[in-house]
Design a protein around this nucleic acid. Structure first.
Lengths: 202, 202
DNA sequence: TAGGTTATACGCACTACCGCCTATTTTTCA
DNA sequence: TGAAAAATAGGCGGTAGTGCGTATAACCTA
């Protein structure tokens, strides 16, 4: 596994000493880390294709950690977030968790605990990425179908025989067979079982 | 909708004045409420078939709210929990949320906010119940299959034709057809599409 | 030990699906 | 406006699945 395929732990904190100590901690377990001094700096540099997780200070000048979380949500960017906070605020923690933060940790934090959460976050990110990737693949395949073919596919998945599909759509049995054959080819399905699995996963 | 089919809001708090005010609040929006003075009392009386959600005080003499949450987890009881706490403790809130609490609210709480969360909890519970019920139905059907039939079913879902299944299992093509017919009847499937949908949902 | 269940197997007729070919009309888009 | 794509439809031959009837052997249980 080369560096490009590795997960990165993104650290966003305005306090340079915190950044340095976090980076040191993360690299001590041979993980790749990147630090940013502000939420905006992170937003400007981050590409959703980069796998990893985000360690985020709640209170920062400019855009706060919570605002960054919200912004990422709006942008449709789903990366596991571990919130770091100096002063405990239950309501804020609950809100962040509801919005999808996977953790909310108070400073000063226990190093090992943080590393454990980072591991959990990285694992979750990889799983989500794999899932999204599969969904995207399926969607690409489905996108190749014409409207008529999608219509026929729905009826096939519903278990209707070609004869019934033909009469329901007011077309010939032969045409349904033609559509069906096209669908099978376009979706790379070897048999009906594969076709249905694909449709149901979409 | 008669009372038996209604969701219930279960309140567990050792403070009788809190119990009374919560019950009053809940009943004011025509929801059904039941109060308990201790976690044990709730455990002794609650049956998982009762739909609803749980409002739980974190700090109580005897079993705490968090301990009750854990106990319910061990018992495999999945009911949405709203934690109530007097003193904010971020770590505790995060732990409770990780264990599946859907909310963690500090006293004194805003009435409307709590009612909103209760509504969310009740909705989630109904959804989960519907999902579990479907899963249970499927499992009952699957349980009717003999080991051999399950084996054949797996191969059918994998898309193998009967001929292949026969040679893979070292039995006759005709026997596979017989198993297949039995499977279709036992699972109430009208066609292969339905069969695969059922298998994949299990 | 009798009776039910399970697993096995065959025949026959019918229905459904699959692949490959050709062909016409309509639609879409560059 | 002309080429490409989509939708339509038919033929032919082969493969696969379905329904119904029949039958035997093994096993478990009452």
């Amino acid at each position: 596994m080369v560096a490009e395929n590795q997960s990165t732990v993104f650290v966003v904190d305005d306090d340079s000493s915190v950044r340095k100590s976090l980076i040191g901690l993360i690299e001590s377990v041979r993980l790749q880390a990147k630090a940013f001094a502000s939420a905006q700096e992170f937003l400007d540099s981050y590409s959703p294709s980069e796998a990893g997780c985000l360690i985020l200070d709640v209170r920062m000048p400019g855009m706060s950690g919570l605002e960054l979380q919200e912004r990422l949500g709006e942008l449709g960017i789903d990366i596991p977030i571990i919130m770091l906070t100096g002063h405990g605020d239950v309501a804020m923690a609950v809100r962040a968790m509801h919005r999808g933060a996977i953790d909310f940790i108070e400073k000063p934090f226990n190093d090992q605990l943080l590393l454990d959460r980072v591991q959990t976050a990285l694992t979750q990110d990889l799983e989500h990425r794999a899932k999204r990737s599969r969904a995207a693949q399926t969607e690409i395949l489905m996108g190749k179908l014409t409207p008529r073919e999608k219509q026929v596919l729905d009826l096939i998945v519903a278990g209707r025989p070609n004869k019934t599909i033909a009469s329901e759509l007011g077309i010939s049995y032969k045409t349904v067979e033609a559509h069906r054959a096209h669908i099978m080819h376009k979706l790379n399905a070897e048999n009906i079982a594969g076709l249905i699995r694909l449709s149901l996963s979409a």
